[in-house]
Each structure stands twice: as C-alpha cells, then as structure tokens.
C-alpha cells in the first residue's frame, strides 16, 4: 500500500537524515519505527507527506508517487494520510470540536471553514469519533484546557476524520505518563485494526512498541538496520540500533508486561 523506494533526504547542511530507505507496508499493518534520537525517524515520516521535501527516491501510496505531485495534487493526497504528533500540535485556542473538524480542511472550501460551516455529515462523524476515542462531551472545551492524554485523543480524532488510509504517528506517547502512553498506543492500534489502516509509529519506548505492533523497523543514521517482528529484537539487534547498553532489563520487562496485557485481553 505504501512503498518507499531509495527514499533519501539530505539537508542543505549536507546531513543525510534519511539514507536510501526502501520498504513496503501492506494495508492494515502497524509498524513501529525505532532508533536513537537524530536517526531520522521524524524526518522520514515528514518526507512521506512532504512536510519536509525528500531529496530523491519515491514514496508510492496506492500507485500514486507522492514525491512528484504538484501542490494541489499533494493537498489531495495529504487527505489520505492522517498525522499524529508528539506535542499533540492542536490549535490551542480553538475548541475540541474545531480541532477535530480541522481534519476536514482538505475537503471543504475556505469560506465554509472560515465560518465553521462544516457539512452535517462531518459534524456527525466528529461526534462519533470523539465518542470512540473517549472525549465525548468535550466538544466545546478549549484544547488548552485538556490534559495530555485527552489532547492526544483529540489529535487522533483529527487524524481519523480525514478518513485516511495511512497514519503517520510521530512519538505519540513521548509527552505522556506510562499509563496514558499505553492507553494511547492501544487506542491507535485498535483503531488501525478497526479501520484497516496502515500506520508508521515513531517511538522511543522499545518496550511499548513491542507490546502493540506486529513489525518493527530500526533506523540508525537514516538507514534501515532492522526490519522484523518484535520478538526478533534481541540485545544484539538493539545494540546494533542504539549502541552498547545492557538491554536484558528492557526486554524482560516487556515480556512480563506482554503477558499482563495478554491476560487482560483474555
């Protein structure tokens, strides 16, 4: 569904942030992108929807090469890619409803959006999504009045109302406490399963990633150095991605947590 071919981003300073990445993500697959800070995770997903312009290579979403689109075609393509941010990136002074509806901006004209006259179908969908992500009854609150977890739920609803095929998720849990972080990761993966969405999730927390995703891609200095199921993340692999460290504790903790979750689900 999404295919990256020799995808490369070189900044003007000469730094190679994404180096010749080739990978394919089928419909409905949730992929965690792990790697040390500065490995190019954020740049990689921003190059896919071209918030950052890639230097070379192709990103093909359902047979459309995103890298060659003109600005109006790019806007249309962006509607199919929902994005979720680390610091939520909500418009702080707008209400929850306005923030959720801003996910429809690619579908409505300027004046309709300026006067907040969104189609009733969009508003219905917004209410449905707020209910689903657990922020029902908060439509009229201002975004800056919410807690971190609630804000990220607004961010998720905003991404989903675009009716996307693909979610680009940038460190969704980095600003959240451990419990909320799990809830948010669970919510994202559940929603992807419900709607058959593919997702690329940048994440620092290896343990958390292992709990919720079916595939992990490890990035080091812009290159893919690991691509496989979470069970294959051995201490050797983690050392390869992040460098030397005692990894046993991290992985063991995950296994315990994993069982816990499995029990809870069962």
């Amino acid at each position: 569904m999404l295919r990256l071919e020799n995808f490369t981003k070189r900044y003007l300073t000469g730094d190679l942030a994404v180096n010749n990445v080739t990978l394919e993500i089928p419909t409905g697959q949730v992929v965690a992108l792990i790697g040390p800070s500065g490995a190019g995770k954020s740049t990689l997903i921003r190059c896919i929807n071209r918030l950052v312009e890639p230097t070379s290579g192709a990103a093909i979403l359902d047979d459309i090469n995103l890298t060659v689109l003109g600005s109006s075609a790019l806007r249309k393509a962006r509607r199919h890619m929902g994005m979720i941010f680390q610091e939520y990136a909500l418009v702080e002074r707008l209400s929850v409803m306005e923030n959720v509806l801003s996910g429809r901006l690619g579908y409505v004209g300027f004046w309709r959006s300026w006067f907040r006259k969104f189609p009733q179908s969009d508003i219905d969908e917004a209410f449905r999504l707020m209910e689903r992500v657990g922020i029902a009854d908060m439509a009229d609150k201002r975004a800056d009045a919410l807690s971190g977890g609630q804000r990220q739920r607004v961010g998720i609803a905003r991404a989903l109302i675009q009716n996307p095929k693909l979610l680009l998720v940038d460190e969704p849990t980095a600003s959240l406490d451990p419990k909320t972080a799990r809830q948010i990761m669970r919510l994202i993966t559940e929603l992807c399963a419900e709607r058959g969405l593919a997702a690329i999730v940048n994440i620092h927390d290896v343990a958390l990633a292992q709990m919720y995703v079916e595939r992990v891609i490890g990035l080091r200095t812009g290159e893919v150095v690991f691509d496989g199921p979470p069970e294959d993340l051995t201490p050797e692999v983690l050392t390869d991605i992040y460098g030397e460290e005692d990894w046993e504790a991290t992985i063991e903790e995950v296994e315990e947590n994993g069982e816990e979750i499995a029990e809870a689900v069962a």
């Binding site: 929807n49 918030l51 806007r75 249309k76 393509a77 962006r78 509607r79 890619m81 929902g82 994005m83 941010f85 990136a89 909500l90 418009v91 707008l94 306005e98 801003s102 996910g103 429809r104 901006l105 690619g106 579908y107 300027f110 959006s113 300026w114 961010g155 905003r158 675009q162 680009l168």
Partner: peptide, 17 residues
C-alpha cells in the same frame, strides 16, 4: 504543520494555524 498535514490550503493554514 498539523493543519498543513490535513491537506489544508494556504489560506486555511492562515485561518486555522
């Protein structure tokens, strides 16, 4: 950035972002 990522136009970015 978040508004741009939804596929909003330049004017919508100004109005919402």
């Amino acid at each position: 950035e978040a508004i741009t990522a939804t596929g909003a136009s330049r004017w919508q970015e100004i109005a919402y972002g």
